[in-house]
Design a protein around this nucleic acid. Sequence first.
DNA 1: TTGTAGGCGTTATCAC
DNA 2: GTGATAACGCCTACAA
Lengths: 343, 343
Amino acid sequence: MQRDKLPTIKEIAKRLKVSTSTVSRALHNHPSIGYITTYRVHKLAEELGYEPNLTAISFKQRKTYTIGVVLPNLSEAFFSTAISGIEDFAATKNYNVLLGQSLDDPEREKRIIETMKTHRVDGMIVSITKNTDNYDHFDQLTKYHIPIVFFDRIPEKKDISYVACNLESGLLQALNLLIEQGHRKIGLINGPDQLIASNQRKETYLKGLTDNNIKPDEKLMVSSSLSKESNQQATSSLLELKDRPTAIITFNDYVALDAIAIAKKHGLVINKDVSIISFANLPIWEYMDNRPLASIEQFPYRQGEKASEILFSFIESQSSTDESTEPLSNQQIIFDSELIKHL
Amino acid sequence: MQRDKLPTIKEIAKRLKVSTSTVSRALHNHPSIGYITTYRVHKLAEELGYEPNLTAISFKQRKTYTIGVVLPNLSEAFFSTAISGIEDFAATKNYNVLLGQSLDDPEREKRIIETMKTHRVDGMIVSITKNTDNYDHFDQLTKYHIPIVFFDRIPEKKDISYVACNLESGLLQALNLLIEQGHRKIGLINGPDQLIASNQRKETYLKGLTDNNIKPDEKLMVSSSLSKESNQQATSSLLELKDRPTAIITFNDYVALDAIAIAKKHGLVINKDVSIISFANLPIWEYMDNRPLASIEQFPYRQGEKASEILFSFIESQSSTDESTEPLSNQQIIFDSELIKHL
DNA sequence: TTGTAGGCGTTATCAC
DNA sequence: GTGATAACGCCTACAA
């Protein structure tokens, strides 16, 4: 009962009184198999409702037709959009996507990577945890020849492939826009110091100001741990300066939400008394009344697509029988962020 | 090079001059294996960095330790939250999650279901497409003894397991709240007629009104295809009635966003001139100035958890060797929605 | 054009 | 306690 056998290649072979290899080849339309045989096999397969057993194929071929995707958090629009891009691309290759959420917990991340490794995924796309500082579990993957493409949150490590977004372009556009509009005191609410993302923002911010002959003011640069309270406090500290900024650039949209709320509490009118520009992760600013002047867009969907594209180039090169081709070298793709104004 | 062999049970056996069966048993701490042997096996396995090959195990055991999850759209907060619940639960069982997005395209849904079937997932959680009207691909799953739990968007079909949310409770609370506040002309912007979800809303709406001795007014009930334009048009049609509603209940938050925008264009003050209540799918109303008075919450995370729980009860009952236990019967769980006021 | 046979890594059923 | 062996479903040299 439990074991009412599903049709297999063997079954078809038996009924047709041919060998399993013939059936296998016929099903793959191997040219060496005669037309009639091929036809009969296909026909019977159809009748029996035969479907190849991928677990057997995976086992035999050492390929699972599955990629693993590990992201910090699916509930962030940035990541859920990215995974759409990944999933779409994988679908075109007839691949499935094994999903894991690290929830920014390095231990959990490690566990996920490991179970995906035992699943023998053909490749992985990973956006690391905020706190990942040990990359051993990633190195382990090379042992299994599992290619990995990092994405957005990438480790500080040489010889890896990744897709990320260059915050510089968008941020410089943002600064230019603000400066054009006459702003001279432009604040920055940055993220935690240990994040690369924070450093990038800070450096570009400094560069953008000095390029425009504005002397950066230490007091205008604050950090937030990205909790709501911290965001609010950072905003307050800026707005309560006796020489308060007339524009603020925030680490991301969530910070912007809190900043906007606090600014309003201070009786300020958004984008009039204080202009806000932030790094995009929300899809619905258009619906909000008090929204940033503009967002620095990072194109998560396209990034996801691109990461998949690179990953599949590895996967496909691996399975190419051509032994002579040398291994593909790592690729680092950096998208330019872009300033999108909210009208 | 390509084939630098990974350590296997066989390798360990050879080195230790024992049989593979001994190694296998030792690794599982089988009681019949001597303490010393067990120890030596574990030690060598560790040294070699042995890791079980799940593809082989899946093949042999007819279990993949993977569940498939098919959702219409990950970029909707409702679903991305739900999948968190599913993923968390699966993780406790050491299961992986194979993800597919149907994007509300029945063809795509069918394809996903099929590839998951060939992957031999141990079970599936599915929220069907808006347009799914053929359930053959689901029936196919029973052939492979793949249990399936439907979730939120469930097919009209007997003998299935599902987890869904009873909209009635929350919607009645919403109506009561509005009526308490003195509203008598309460509009409904519903979704497409063919959706069960729309019918449920409509029926409950009618019931809520009549229970409160308010005679439903056909003109106050409109439908939207859920596109932005359609939402706007539906809202306008309500607001331009000479006897316009003083409160509107919308099909979901996205409709509410459009409705609010249009209401403002009509010069109305939200929740003063016209109160809005909607079915929740957005996480960030708290940041918005013009937000609904309240949302009808459907607890996606908990629903996802519950769906997983049911699914795993099936999965685990299947693998129980006890032949005598009769198959678990289907379960239908219905959560109560709840009205959450936005202060 | 088709068949034979071996093997992928693991577990399970017998034996001993 | 431990070992031999078959089996899971499929693919692929190698033969014929």
